[in-house]
């Protein structure tokens, strides 16, 4: 009985990982930071209109996403699957509010 228990305990793998040295396995459906491929963008505004929190906007260089507003709902990727995908990126922290603004540039 005790031997059995010991064997089971010794055989048990660690349930945690050595993050950030080891990277977690991210499920395929995961909805991380939206990413836009601006080469395919025809500036139709649909993604901007679909965003419930107005996190997207066009700037001179391309499409700007404000991560301080984004709720990762995936609406933009749903209305424009040609350009926008919900990537598996989850490490999005920044030290400044400006740093949370991501710009997807043309070309």
């Amino acid at each position: 009985m005790i031997l059995k228990l010991l064997r089971r305990l010794l055989g048990r793998r660690s349930r945690t990982i050595q993050y950030p040295i080891e990277q977690p396995i991210i499920p395929a459906e995961f909805m991380g930071c939206p990413e836009a491929d601006m080469n395919r963008c025809d500036r139709c505004d649909q993604c901007i209109a679909s965003c419930p929190v107005s996190a997207l906007d066009f700037v001179d260089e391309g499409l700007q996403l404000d991560l301080s507003l984004c709720v990762f709902c995936g609406e933009c990727a749903r209305v424009c699957p040609e350009c926008i995908v919900m990537s598996d990126k989850f490490e999005l922290a920044s030290k400044s509010k400006e740093g949370l603004k991501v710009v997807f540039t043309y070309g």
Binding site: P27, E29, F30, M31, C73, G74, E75, M86
Partner: peptide, 10 residues
């Protein structure tokens, strides 16, 4: 794993 959202959003 099934839907991409732990709380079944979206």
């Amino acid at each position: 794993w099934l839907t991409g959202s732990r709380l079944l959003r979206s």
